[in-house]
């Protein structure tokens, strides 16, 4: 007796799994196509972006050459001078203010034989003559009280043949 399978389920199962397989394959192929399309799009986009970047860089170079050439040097030169002039104009120069400061602080009856302003040391060395040591001391105090000077250093003092006091004072400028 020949075995004959009359059950219809196996055929239907095969049909169904074939349909699943086809659907799965369709999805897989679709994903593959999408990926391939995406890769192609990326490839051309990268090329196009690189070309655009190169064009922008070339244009930048041309603009840069225009920038450093031509009249911009005059603009920069003027600006540099403005900047430097501002710094210089605000620079304190004690040399010009030293004479009025000394005039104001001089005690009557005391006078100078010489003065020497030194910008690097920011000080003034003076040689003066006073009638006596008391006057000299007053002169030292007057310089100390001046708003222009930060310190007074007393140097050599001596009496001259007329009995007057020759003194040396070193004045530090604030």
């Amino acid at each position: 007796m020949v075995n004959i399978n009359l059950a219809a389920t196996s055929y239907e199962n095969d049909k169904r799994s074939s349909s699943y397989y086809n659907q799965g394959m369709f999805v897989i192929v679709a994903i593959l196509v999408i990926l391939a399309g995406a890769y192609l799009w990326i490839y051309f986009s990268v090329n196009s972006t690189v070309a655009k970047t190169a064009a922008a860089n070339n244009q930048y170079d041309a603009e840069y050459k225009k920038f450093i050439g031509g009249n911009n040097k005059n603009v920069m030169d003027f600006q540099n001078r403005l900047t430097v002039a501002k710094e210089l104009l605000n620079q304190k120069n004690s040399g010009y203010g030293s004479l009025p400061a000394i005039e104001t602080a001089m005690v009557q009856g005391v006078y100078l034989n010489s003065l020497a302003f030194d910008q690097l040391k920011n000080s003034i060395a003076t040689e003066g003559i006073a009638d006596n040591f008391d006057m000299m001391a007053k002169q030292v105090l007057s310089f100390k009280q001046s708003a222009f000077f930060s310190g007074v250093t007393t140097g050599k003092t001596s009496l001259d043949k007329d009995g007057k006091v020759n003194f040396v004072l070193n004045l530090s400028i604030k």
Binding site: Y96, L112, L115, A116, F117
Partner: peptide, 21 residues
Amino acid sequence: LIIKIASLRRFNNIAGLEISK
């Protein structure tokens, strides 16, 4: 003179000044 030099329209400053008899 010092005042005039100080106000000269060309930048300058006094680095040293000695006044003596």
